[in-house]
């Protein structure tokens, strides 16, 4: 019989070994993948993306800005740009790198691949909002032009990615979302969120935690140097300017102000109480949204909370005659206006 101490030590060593290889963050496999990500092709494509976006937004790219975006040194950036120049992707004008038309076409493909992939992640998978960007960032380098057109067909040619960025056509020009920062709205001005920037990740994660999403109507309630208070689709939010900078809006000067009141959520109902549905939050997306709609949770529907689960959290609602249980985080995404017993049909 093998010595237990020896075999235990050996087993622990094996487990340690496997951990070192497979662990999602510091594991060797992951590090190797990360190394792949800094291969010359990937760096080229990322640099092209950066150059094109900078060009469209009219804030010309510099050596420093490229180095910063790609997180590589100036020296390596210089040799990267020289490599791209030899390939006919960039030229130097007035000491700044400029895209050639070949380079622009290439960049457009990468951006298109990225945004379509994000759309596919949002629409057809269960990945969380904060995971989309990193996954697309990786995937954009693997998709060929044919893959991308196939993907576009499969998804029904979507026009915007889930963050509100327009998905460019296979050939043509990159459009911007055309919004302006939320902070530029004055107090009491109204607007419509058309874009939420997903970088940096930590900032975006906080906006996701606030359940903010493109498609929402906003109204600024208060604004100081330290914070902005605003109403968005029924709820009030308080954000630091650094976070708010990631939100872009189009002003809606003629918005119907009577719509801008604070609303309750379906999850606020207690058994026996009735309400009319105002809207499904724009935060709810993809398969989940379609399911809720198909269950009959459309605007104007009257619902009644009927049963609370013995285990808590899940509540059954009477929806168009059917008794359907929803979890609290789902019910939270449904905005309602409460009906008093007398109003009930």
């Amino acid at each position: 019989m093998p010595d237990p101490l020896a075999s235990l030590t050996l087993a622990l060593a094996i487990i340690l070994f496997l951990t070192v290889i497979f662990w999602p963050t510091f594991g060797l496999i992951n590090q190797w993948k990360r190394h792949q990500r800094t291969s010359i092709r990937v760096l080229t494509e990322d640099a092209l993306k950066h150059l094109y976006k900078a060009e469209v937004e009219g804030r010309g790219a510099t050596l420093q800005s490229i180095a910063g975006t790609l997180q590589i040194g100036i020296e390596r950036t210089t040799s990267l740009l020289a490599y791209m120049q030899r390939g006919g992707l960039v030229t130097w004008e007035e000491g700044r790198p400029q895209l050639t038309s070949v380079g622009r076409h290439y960049a457009l493909h990468i951006i298109r691949a990225h945004r379509l992939w994000e759309y596919q992640l949002a629409d057809q998978t269960g990945y969380g909002k904060t995971e989309w960007h990193a996954l697309a960032e990786h995937r954009e380098h693997e998709l060929t032009r044919d893959d991308v057109s196939e993907l576009s067909v499969k998804l029904g040619h979507p026009r915007y990615d889930p963050h509100g960025d327009p998905i460019p056509p296979a050939s043509g020009h990159l459009q911007t979302h055309g919004g302006k920062p939320l902070m530029t709205l004055a107090v009491n001005q109204t607007g419509h969120i058309i874009h939420i920037e997903d970088e940096p990740e930590t900032v975006f994660a906080q906006l996701v935690a606030e359940e903010l999403s493109p498609g929402m109507d906003v109204r600024v309630l208060d604004k100081t140097r330290e914070r902005i208070v605003f109403w968005a689709d029924g709820d009030e939010h308080i954000l630091a300017p650094m976070l708010a900078a990631n939100i872009s809006v189009v002003p809606l000067p003629n918005a119907d102000r009577s719509k801008f009141f604070n609303t309750e959520h379906l999850s606020d109902l207690k058994p026996g109480e009735q309400a009319r549905i105002l809207r499904l939050s724009h935060f709810c997306h993809g398969a989940e949204r379609r399911r809720l709609l198909d269950l009959g949770l459309t605007k104007g529907t009257v619902v009644e909370a009927e049963l609370a689960s013995a285990g808590g959290d899940t509540m059954a609602y009477r929806i168009r005659g059917a008794l359907i249980a929803l979890r609290s985080e789902q019910a939270r995404l449904i905005h309602i206006t409460r009906l008093r017993a007398a109003d009930a049909p």
Binding site: L121, Q124, T125, G126, Y127, G128, E131, G286, A287, E288, R291, L292, L295, L307, T314, A316, A322, L323, I324, A325, L326, R327, Q330
Partner: peptide, 13 residues
């Protein structure tokens, strides 16, 4: 299974 679609609903017939 992180990437698999998840849509909860439970009808009580």
């Amino acid at each position: 299974l992180k990437g698999e679609v998840s849509t909860f609903s439970l009808e009580l017939p």
